[in-house]
Design a protein around this nucleic acid. Structure first.
Lengths: 131, 131
DNA sequence: CTTGAGCTTCCATCTGCTGGAAGGACTATC
DNA sequence: GATAGTCCTTCCAGCAGATGGAAGCTCAAG
């Protein structure tokens, strides 16, 4: 599969896919004509990168998460340690998003643009609703 | 409150706070000595920025979200339209994170580093577990 | 009144893309 | 088989969002 198809299936621009190759996040086979050739497994990686980057994981964190996939022959203890660390990070992000959601939900439900002093968005913005 | 205290309370480096001021995400009062002076409300905004940026919202999106806070005297319809749009975006992010969480959870529970071909992380990476 | 931490501005550097130019390859039509 | 249009290649420039460091001012403690 050419880079254009991989781009469409992963949601990542071709430019970004080439960049990810350049910084070593993945390697691509080459067809005889010199074109990059992607497998469905490559597309899975790209889709994963697209999602994880959009959720605020850094490229280095993505590299680490991908390594859980590529190196699943590593000692279970290693893999589990990294995975558990990332799980905690994901849980924190979910909590934060839930806080943001609550804040915006309150805004939609309760704020009528009348500048009332008890606008619930104030609490939401400060993060107090999370705790 | 000086920038150092605001930094500690918001979780953002002083450098980043100054940068956010430079690009107009917030304005800071100045004390007589020239030092920036932050209110607790400023800290709420900074905390919000810290969370939202970490969750993959762009600076422009943050600017928009902050405007929901600052301009809460705007027509309810405007505010609600933007808020609902952002709510959908947040829900999507929560779904994606939940998918990632499931994937990692499977890895922790089911992968033992023995390179079994049915490692559930493969499905998780492709995003299929979300749907 | 010195010492050290914290503040200021300015400028350079880094990460993570993103755009554009110049040129080769593929597909379809004439 | 020439021509057009789209896709691919590399290379290099530029932008977004910080981040680090230098040079110098301020403040609080001893």
């Amino acid at each position: 599969m050419n880079i254009g198809a991989a781009s469409r299936q992963s949601g990542l621009p071709s430019k970004t896919i080439r960049y990810y190759e350049e910084i070593g996040l993945l390697t691509a086979d080459r067809a005889l004509n010199g074109y990059r050739d992607y497998s469905t497994e490559d597309v899975h990686r790209l889709r994963f990168l697209q999602r994880a980057r959009g959720l605020g994981f850094s490229v280095e964190e993505c590299r680490e998460l991908l390594s859980l996939y590529s190196d699943r022959e590593r000692a279970s203890s290693d893999v589990k340690a990294i995975a558990k660390e990332k799980l905690a990070e994901i849980d924190r992000k979910i909590e934060e998003l839930t806080g943001l959601r609550l804040m915006l939900g309150h805004l939609v439900d309760n704020c009528h643009g009348d500048a009332r002093p008890d606008c619930p968005i104030i609490d939401g913005l400060s993060g107090r609703l999370e705790h």
